[in-house]
Amino acid sequence: MKAVVTVTGTDRKGIIAQVSAFLSEKNINILDISQTIMRDRFAMIMVVDASECTEDLASLASSAAEMGKDIGMSVRVQHEDIFQAMHRV
């Protein structure tokens, strides 16, 4: 099962390293990663494979949000289907 991880906030050093370490701890594989400055803010978008994740997606989303607070960023994990539904016919 694929999920989309979105990290937004003010740009600084080490964000990718911290988020990657978190995902690795949860046994999640990063499939695609892109980073950009969108509408004046840092935005990193990862597509990940969460099928071997140590927890279910709902609780992963909560722990990712918590981790985001610790590093001063907004971190979301969402099932890829919500983006498929809204942006692909």
Partner: peptide, 12 residues
């Protein structure tokens, strides 16, 4: 895959 604009649009 999705591009950044699409993902950010949904989140916004």
């Amino acid at each position: 895959m999705f591009n950044s604009t699409e993902v950010i649009e949904t989140i916004d």
